[in-house]
Amino acid sequence: MDFWDILNYLAWIVSAILLAWMVIDTFKVSAEYSEDYLLSSREGEDIIPEDDDNG
């Protein structure tokens, strides 16, 4: 097994971690918050955000 084979496995592992993180977070958020709240967005409402928590 050379460097490129290891890199291939590494790419699969990192991809799996990132995908799993997103799926788990999606389920966690959906369980933690009410559906009405998550779907409360409306177009055309010019609202200034109260915080800039943007990852």
């Binding site: 409360s40 967005s41 109260e50």
Partner: peptide, 15 residues
Amino acid sequence: AASAGGGEQRLQLLK
């Protein structure tokens, strides 16, 4: 959440 007026809490995409 952002407030949409009238005290109602709404989630909007971040501006």
